[in-house]
């Protein structure tokens, strides 16, 4: 494992991100969005980087979370903590179901199935418009309150989300470094051998899916509370694509790479979409470039930069040793 990928360094990087974002960015909404997507992308990374499952259906759980928040707060005024809990539980359950179906096939077929399920849930939301609001979405999702004080300022809600982000990030760090996480790595490396040793591979994959889905749904719910609506777009193909693209751009070998991927994508979109509405064309070219030249993503660049730095510092002694 790379020295930057140890749990201590990773959690420090996450903490530094949370503390620095308010100084770097003017928009509290953008900063909050980065943290929300960072945890969603890290959950996608649990599947892609640690289990070897490329899921094109993360938008299902994200959208589910936004609808849970939308329906529960606008129809029944359910308290926010309960809303978030329901989002997590429902996200985990739906992910278990989608996972159960999808992992019946492997490799490319798995990817195709997750994409098809993403479409299925989109059309579910579109069809049952009396629950989801259809094209209009659900409007008027309120911000949470803490001790009678509504978090409607730009940075108040940021702090609220930051706590969730740090907790989730720590949980994912623990999960990936536990026996469970190591087993996922074994499955990624050689599924046949992991099965031969006696691991219930399918169960492990479904569990990874459930964890990922629960976190993604939490992110979706937090996002609905942020922007005040639960739109139909949150469950469409584009959301799934965006989460996956963030994961790969960030680099799937480290959890903090996912934070970088989310930040990079959202900052790029925030800057470019103002200048040129057709900025997705540039994104398309970025994706091709990443695949051709930066296969380990942004995190790969960081590791390479660190190695070069460390090499230069201890350079002379090592060269002497080599000779």
């Amino acid at each position: 494992m790379h020295i930057l990928d140890t749990a201590k360094v990773q959690i420090c990087l996450a903490l530094a991100t949370v503390l620095l974002l308010p100084f770097v960015l003017n928009s509290g909404i953008l900063a909050t969005e980065i943290l929300i997507y960072a945890m969603v992308v890290a959950a996608c990374n649990l599947l892609l980087g640690y289990t070897g499952l490329l899921s094109f259906g993360q938008g299902i759980f994200f959208g589910l979370g936004t609808y849970v928040a939308g329906v529960l707060t606008t129809r029944w005024a359910v308290p926010i903590p309960l809303v978030l809990l329901v989002a997590v539980v429902l996200g985990g359950l739906v992910a278990t179901a989608v996972g159960w179906f999808s992992i019946r096939r492997q490799g490319v077929y798995f990817v195709m199935l997750t994409l098809a399920f993403a479409q299925m849930f989109y059309f579910l939301a579109y069809t049952f418009s009396d629950i989801t609001g259809g094209d209009n979405g659900l409007l008027g999702v309120p911000r949470p309150q803490i001790m009678g004080h509504v978090l409607d300022g730009p940075w108040g809600y940021y702090s609220f989300v930051a706590i969730f982000f740090l907790v989730i990030f720590a949980v994912l760090l623990v999960v990936t470094r536990s026996t469970f996480g190591r087993t996922l790595l074994a499955i990624r490396e050689n599924e046949g051998r992991a099965a031969a040793i006696g691991f219930p591979v399918r169960l492990f994959k479904i569990e990874a899916f459930a964890i990922s889905g629960a976190i993604t749904a939490l992110g979706g719910a937090l996002h609905a509370l942020l922007i005040g609506i639960a739109p139909l777009e949150s469950i469409n193909y584009h959301t799934s694509e965006m989460i996956l693209v963030m994961t790969i751009i960030g680099g799937s070998t480290s959890l903090f790479g996912s934070v970088m991927g989310a930040g990079f994508y959202l900052l790029l979109s925030d800057t470019l979409s103002v200048i040129w509405p057709r900025w997705l064309l540039l994104l398309g070219l970025v994706l091709v470039t990443v695949a051709l030249f930066f296969q380990r993503g942004l995190w790969g660049l960081v590791e390479r930069g660190w190695d070069a730095f460390a090499e230069r510092r201890k350079g002379p002694q090592k060269e002497a040793g080599d000779v």
Partner: peptide, 26 residues
Amino acid sequence: IYKLPHTFHILVTVGIALVFQELAII
């Protein structure tokens, strides 16, 4: 990119699809 893992096939072709979609709009 044929030799790369499927992840990168998907990344590149998703990129191409985005380029076509945006070009169509332009």
